[in-house]
């Protein structure tokens, strides 16, 4: 019996008022439960709008979204088992890390021992143990990124949406975060990951979709896409490790987007 995908999207369309073209234009895709799914696209391709639609921030104007086989209608219920880690440092900089964790745990309705256990889990996964009493504003970019991730883990989500979670941090922090994400996936969490760093996608994702101008250009497993990239004529001075980027650029072209 075929397993139900974590996310199934059919003919999804969203058009912002006043814009000429739709931000999401007839996208159909499927994300397997327990996978780490990479969502790629240049700036303005429609990734953020697609994430907003999948997380219930925006409601689809056309098409259908199914989460674990159920049509997305009750966003309040959806928000109990999904989590979005935005690209921005979406927390309160003048509060300490502990206060931020307490505050967001409160937003999830967590109390008492249950709350403490969830906070301990998030702190452990993100390596924040010794930093809890520091104000977020005084922490390094790497710690802030880890706090951003930790806040997204407080409800122990089945689906975790990560929007460029490693922007602007050093190699050590990036390595730590990628390891943590891989660990979460191994524990059974479905991860939807957007990034502009191809090597990150290559290192942690098992399936990929590339979108541009609101349209889905390709969706396949990482292995298949790398195989297709291998068939492409090699670009001068390009290394094998950059095959995914070559393939991505061949689809989205080299023209600057902003």
């Amino acid at each position: 019996m075929e397993s139900v995908p974590a996310i199934a999207v059919r003919n999804l369309r969203f058009h912002y008022p006043g814009e000429k073209l739709p931000a999401v234009d007839d996208i159909t895709l499927s994300i397997d439960t327990g996978s780490c799914f990479g969502l790629l696209g240049p700036n303005g391709a429609g990734k953020s709008t697609l994430l907003a639609l999948l997380t219930g921030i925006l409601l689809p104007q056309h098409g259908d979204i199914r989460i674990n086989g159920e049509r997305l209608s009750n966003t309040r219920k959806l928000h109990e088992y999904i989590s979005l880690v935005p690209q921005d440092y979406a927390f309160y900089p003048t509060l300490t890390l502990q206060e931020n964790l307490d505050c967001f745990a409160g937003f999830y309705g967590l109390q008492g021992a249950h709350k403490r256990a969830r906070i301990d889990f998030a702190v452990q996964v993100c390596g924040l143990d010794d930093l809890l009493h520091q104000r977020a504003s005084s922490c390094s970019g790497g710690v802030r990124r880890r706090l951003n991730l930790a806040l997204g883990l407080l409800n122990q989500p089945e689906l975790l949406f990560l929007d460029e979670p490693t922007v602007g941090i050093d190699a050590q922090s990036r390595h730590f975060i990628l390891e943590s994400i891989a660990g979460l996936q191994r524990a059974g969490m479905t991860i939807i990951y957007t990034s502009h760093y191809m090597e990150e996608i290559q290192s942690i994702c098992d399936a990929i979709a590339i979108i541009d101008h609101g349209k889905l250009l390709v969706q396949d497993s990482l292995a298949n896409i790398l195989a297709r990239a291998a068939d492409m004529p090699a670009l001068p001075a390009r290394q094998n490790a950059q095959r995914l980027e070559d393939f991505y650029l061949s689809l989205t072209h080299h023209a600057l987007r902003d």
């Binding site: 979005l84 921005d88 979406a90 937003f107 999830y108 309705g109």
Partner: peptide
């Protein structure tokens, strides 16, 4: 501006909270 409101939209809390 910090994106916290956007994040709150994905939490199981009323929009007006």
């Amino acid at each position: 501006q910090q994106g916290t409101l956007r994040r709150l939209r994905t939490l199981p809390v009323p929009l007006a909270l």
